[in-house]
Design a protein around this nucleic acid. Structure first.
Length: 343
DNA sequence: TTCCAGACTA
DNA sequence: TAGTCTGGAA
């Protein structure tokens, strides 16, 4: 049986006062109640740090100033602009969501968390963030940072790998909400989690709610939140064939599912012999490039690269794909390690 | 080199 | 419940 938790009533007003004085107020997606801008930032900020998002956010807004522009674009263009951010299903859902807003909602985002959550790529926490920031709705967020902040505040010892325990924490998050100033409160949770209440070394001496924090009072705040993980990482090894002819690179589109779904890659082989077979057809003389280590959730990936310049006349017999001029590579969605390799 | 953090979908 | 990408820390 888990211990009894009483939520501290002073948490919300203290956090709100702290956010107003010490929180972030100048991020590009703040100081607006435009749901398009807030939504775009929230999707990009899923699993991605602020510093990484800044440049992408700027480029997206320049190219797609309004949700109608994003909806009218091709998925290929959206993916190309997203390339390097990772978790590409976010880009697919972003595009689908923009189209749903146009076709199902007359070009306006729904004005409630419940309505927002029906859209592709918008889950409970993202819906709540947009509804709180844009419409002042009194509704709780619970992303990874907030789980950490609240887990420590309440010394919540339930295992968040369990959906029942996660549901309990959602209930506490809702119980903690202030009667007003939901915008500052929500931003305060994010700011606290991103700065003082960091994962490994929380700065409790600087924390505005240290007096209220059961995790700190117990003496070991980093014990929380509890999440059992059973991640077993494997290894994979593949070979990339990097062919160039007259300033063009041969690219193949990845399948619609799995790693780098829909992105553009060099021809990828399971072993060196298969690659060599294709290279021989072209009479290509292969150059060995430094191997690349790339980590994904469930495996470490070793990518070997063999590069060759080939003659115009010889390519008919080689691997299929699209020859892309170097200066057009920016139009293609390339995974991060490939971008670093060839651009 | 390995480990970790990070929301949503199917 | 498994799968997904990248950056940064250990």
């Amino acid at each position: 049986m888990s211990k009894t938790i009483v939520v501290p009533l002073q948490f919300a007003p203290t956090l709100v006062a702290w956010q107003r004085r010490h929180g972030r107020h100048e991020l590009p997606w703040q100081n607006t109640r435009d749901p398009y801008r807030v939504w775009l930032s929230e999707i990009m900020l899923q699993q991605t740090q602020v510093t990484t998002v800044l440049g992408y956010y700027q480029r997206f807004l320049e190219r797609f100033p309004a949700v109608s522009d994003l909806a009218a674009a091709s998925l290929d263009e959206v993916l190309a602009l997203w390339a390097g951010l990772g978790y590409y299903s976010r880009a697919r859902n972003l595009h689908a969501c923009a189209q749903a807003v146009m076709t199902l909602h007359g070009g306006e985002f729904p004005r409630s968390a419940a309505g927002l959550q029906t859209l592709p790529g918008i889950g409970r926490s993202t819906a709540a963030a947009v509804a709180a920031f844009c419409f002042g709705e009194r509704v709780a967020i619970l992303d990874g940072n907030v789980k950490r902040v609240l887990g420590r505040l309440l010394a919540f010892d339930g295992d968040l790998a369990s959906s029942a325990e996660e549901k309990r924490l959602w209930a506490f998050a809702t119980e903690l909400l202030p009667a007003e100033a939901i915008e500052s409160y929500t931003q305060g949770l994010m700011d606290l989690g991103a700065s003082i209440c960091s994962s490994r070394s929380p700065q409790c001496l600087l924390c505005p709610v240290a007096d209220l924090c059961a995790g700190r009072i117990e003496g070991e705040p980093t014990r929380y939140p509890v999440k059992t993980r059973k991640l077993k990482r494997g290894r994979r090894e593949n070979w990339w064939l990097w062919l160039e002819r007259e300033g063009q690179v041969l690219l193949q589109q990845r399948p619609a599912t799995g790693v780098w779904a829909g992105l553009w890659s060099l021809p990828l082989y399971d072993d060196e012999a298969a690659l060599q077979l294709d290279a021989d057809k072209l009479g290509a003389k292969l150059e060995v490039m430094p191997r690349i280590a790339h980590a994904l959730t469930h495996f470490d990936w070793i990518l070997h690269t063999r590069r060759a310049d080939v003659l115009i006349g010889s390519v008919e017999s080689g691997p299929g794909g699209v020859w892309v001029a170097r200066e057009r590579l920016a139009d293609y969605a390339l995974p991060a390690p490939l971008k670093k390799l060839i651009v």
